[in-house]
Design a protein around this nucleic acid. Structure first.
Lengths: 342, 342
DNA sequence: CTGAAAGCGCTTACAG
DNA sequence: CTGAAAGCGCTTACAG
């Protein structure tokens, strides 16, 4: 593969020193306009592009942010990356992405491998108890934790108010007159899932201290929602409303109900969490909590940049509050009729 | 942020030269076992992690693959990244991700910025005509193009057989007895969309040279499918079958049909392309072409690694053939009954 | 098997 | 404003 052109080649052809080339290319102001133009012309002609490793070795900056996620798959990470990427390109930064597929050991090595490659780190670690070695391996890099269980370390963390969102949803279902509200849980050991479950429980008990939470297991996948929906229909006494910990599982429930000929919301009300694009398109459309995931990523990125710049960001770590989106799947009977959908 | 520990610190404490530390850490065999152990112990104790920029500057390898995509958003890219990532971690490689959001100028700069940061490049460039400057900016890096329009340059390219897949689907619909088959197209200027459209046209005309292709515009988004579905219902003579260029648009159509009370497949058969997870869950379940997107990414990555290793890969550039998945939305009347769904 | 030294391609005080 | 030189933290022939 053709030998690359270096700063020395540019210097030679432009008849200046490499130092001057460096200054001209980096936009320093201590270069005569004529010289700068000559250098830029030669650089362009040679298709010169600075060697990144060399530059970051001497400048101690990489212009790259490391993103360490549990996985790269699915709507959530896709949206998160979009938000992060948006801010990154605004700032001319690159993204080094690494996912550890749920293996904490790999997470540690992923973090360590970031040394000398990134200026800062965005880390999502939803698995309970990960954070001990996490802080050990964060090395000396500025880092922001996303949707991760807080610990007593003074790590900077930012996330979604899953707890408050779940409470709001249960309150909505209660207000619609439902009492027997079942919850389809997310994967055990997942912090988001845990917070949503906690919100469900607390809201239920706050309304009626003798209420009995009814929790069906799930794993955030549509198939587990489908199974949960079937299990709920088979119960001796069916729930009046089902609140799934995310939309994919809610859709799984919905299809289980459709297959069984159980009408939503007439016989069972249904609600999810996340507001994925399809939520508004299914029949009936799905009531859910809208989470601006891209904004979650974008905000975390902005906070990280300010941490890097040495600013105090603590005031900006307030969790992102999800928004209740009421659609057909939870409409109280009184409200239904010839009205259109959202 | 705390000064990092370098190879010199390890050398000093282990009482050897930096060269020996380097050899011990990199697993070279010209190091005594005792010395190696001592070095490793000190490195571990100091939490030493090699500085990547320095290493790649001197070794001329980055252990990183650059991935340049039009976008990071949505099921397709998410799956693609998963496949790429899978192979990357098998090989201990990192991924530098960059998306150019449809702006060719940014694509060029993204490509150039990869110099000195990556050992090879995976590039997806579905926009027609992008490839001229693409090859100019690929510099001297090994690269594999994914799902991109081939040019006369001898770039290594690999993709899905969208054309063949679309033909197969139309043939299926024809075999089911449908004649008036409408097509909901993807975005203009998108190579995947163009190939699917071409397959639709050719299959239709191959069966009946006097057939008139019926193409409704779309952009791969569910909303455009919804609009297309409504437009098709409003036609003087409705189509007997609708083939959408991807599943999201097919789902949009499906909901438009449901809202209008038009039964699928009894009144209109429907088919999509991609086999997204939801395709099997909607009612009726959706006939589609299954594309193993993760495998597309994984295979492209493997090819790239072999290109890097200097192997001849031309024999492995055969497009990935999608698989026809027949579900309820296109079942011929005769076949319907008490049978379960897939 | 081990060490001293050169070099990877840049940036940045330091002089002038 | 410009250049010569040191240095960023590694790896790798080259000697021994």
């Amino acid at each position: 593969m053709a030998s690359s052109v270096t700063i020395r080649d540019v210097a030679r052809l432009a008849k200046v020193s490499v130092a001057t080339v460096s200054r001209a290319l980096n936009g320093h102001d201590n270069v005569t306009e004529g010289v700068r133009r000559r250098v830029l012309a030669v650089a362009h002609e040679l298709r010169y592009s600075p060697h990144h490793a060399a530059r970051s070795l001497s400048s101690r900056r990489t212009h790259t942010i490391g993103v360490v996620l549990p996985d790269l798959h699915g709507e959530f990470f896709s949206e998160l990356m979009r938000g992060i990427d948006l801010v990154a390109r605004e700032c001319g930064l690159h993204l080094l992405v690494s996912s550890y597929h749920g293996h904490p050991e790999e997470q540690a090595s992923a973090l360590r491998a970031m040394r000398g490659r990134v200026d800062g780190l965005l880390v999502m670690s939803p698995h309970a108890g990960d954070l001990d070695f996490l802080s050990e391996n964060l090395a000396a890099l500025p880092a922001v934790l996303i949707n991760s269980q807080p610990t007593d370390t003074d790590q900077i963390a930012f996330g979604i108010d899953n707890y408050g969102g779940a409470r709001a949803m249960v309150e909505h279902l209660l207000a619609a007159g439902h009492r027997r509200i079942a919850f389809v849980a997310g994967p055990p050991n997942n912090f988001d899932a845990y917070e949503r479950l906690r919100g469900y429980r607390d809201a239920l008990l706050a309304a009626d201290a003798s209420a009995e939470p009814w929790v069906v297991p799930g794993d955030f996948g549509e198939a587990s929602g489908h199974a949960a929906g079937q299990a709920l229909l088979a119960a001796a006494q069916r729930p009046q409303a089902v609140f799934a910990a995310n939309d994919m599982m809610a859709l799984g429930c919905l299809f289980a109900f459709s297959q069984a000929g159980v009408r939503v919301p007439d016989e069972i009300a249904l609600a999810g969490f996340d507001d994925i694009p399809l939520a508004r398109y299914v029949m009936p459309s799905l009531t859910t909590m809208r989470v601006n995931i891209a904004e979650l990523g974008a905000h975390a990125m902005r906070v990280l940049l300010d941490v890097y710049a040495g600013q105090d960001v603590r005031a900006r770590l307030v969790p992102l509050v999800p928004e209740l989106i009421v659609r057909e799947s939870s409409e109280p009977k009184a409200a239904r009729g010839a009205s259109g959908r959202e």
